[in-house]
Design a protein around this nucleic acid. Structure first.
Lengths: 192, 192
DNA sequence: CCAATTATTTGACATAGGTCAAAAGAAATC
DNA sequence: GATTTCTTTTGACCTATGTCAAATAATTGG
């Protein structure tokens, strides 16, 4: 999805504002496996995915990757806390499929927030939306069985299963890839 | 903490704006065990806790309560998705200690968002902050042991342990109260 | 196309944390 | 301050899911 369409569907910007806002973003194609941000770096940009899939993840002891979130076309992507507080990112941001993305720096975004009340509103709405999505995931993770968490994921990211590696999804769901593999096979819940 | 202090510490409102904004809130004292919102009701107000503790929780099958979040003095409290999307709340909002709180309706808040760019900014900043806090909890819940989750909680809500029931905290942390009780006792991780 | 990686599945076994039931301790009510 | 009710602790046992290791299967590169 194009950035302009996305923006105007969220807040009714006058055309002049919309054009000006878009002009502050850069559009680029990036390839699979590109790392946008590494742990410890400050995340300098907010991205919008026109096409492709990405994820954020962190490393546990023993170097195990834990997927924190997936981002698909039509969504903003960033290491949020790092981007907004300008402190070192706890997460890696990785592109998992060839993608087209728009990006904007923190300075330019702040300028737009200050210039356009509408833009500030967009920021508020996006934050609130993301917040409710994270809360949903939390509810799923906090008290559901591995199988129920898998079902939750299908509602949040319906086609992700065919697009990214099993292990990435398993860690996103808080389980091992062996467990996810068995769930997909449809193992009957073990009796005695 | 007073609402006015909180607001001006977050965004530098001109005094006139601040006064006007505050005037849209109502202040009231409420007693322990008061239910602000029940599941299925639309949450009509956003609250700010000057004093006291509250929580949001939902009911699992078998009527078990699962605490979703705690709110302490100096924080806003609401069933966020319900309040912002005006749909039925999935959660109960309950006051756990005698409290003093300010409240504002959605209509009045929208009016303030529209009237003051600064207010819109405040909304954005609060959403973003809450988002990072929820993400932190998610990271803790997703891949940490019961003991580590308990440690996480002490950083997010240092004094909550003395203020609310064990069972409320246990479900907040995604564990049973028996497990939390054993952690507090300092059980050595079981050998053999 | 074949070799070499890389990802997924399977099996055997281990364990953190759950469940259920009862006892002990606090708090509220009369 | 005794009785009732609610909360926390403890113990015995169970199970979902993790760990480790090996076998397939799929993908990638020469």
């Amino acid at each position: 999805m194009k950035l302009a369409n996305y923006l105007e569907n969220t807040v009714p910007f006058p055309t002049g504002e919309l054009m000006d806002i878009i002009s502050y973003f850069e559009r680029e194609a990036v390839q699979k496996n590109k790392m946008l941000v590494r742990e410890g770096q400050v995340c300098t940009k907010l991205y919008f995915l026109e096409k492709g899939v990405g994820r954020s993840y962190y490393l546990k002891e023993a170097g195990k990757e834990v997927t924190q979130w997936f981002f698909v076309e039509g969504q903003f992507m960033s290491s949020i806390e790092s981007f907004f507080q300008q402190n070192p990112s706890l997460y890696y941001l990785e592109i998992l499929e060839d993608a087209v993305l728009y990006s904007i720096t923190r300075e330019k975004l702040d300028l737009l927030f200050a210039r356009y009340h509408n833009m500030e509103k967009l920021g508020r709405l996006l934050s609130t939306e993301m917040l409710t999505r994270v809360v949903n995931k939390l509810s799923a993770i906090q008290f559901q069985t591995a199988r129920e968490r898998h079902d939750y994921m299908l509602t949040e990211f319906p086609d992700i299963a065919n697009r990214v590696a099993l292990g990435h999804i398993a860690s996103y769901l808080g389980m091992t890839q062996e467990t996810l593999s068995r769930i997909r096979r449809g193992d009957p819940p073990k009796k005695s």
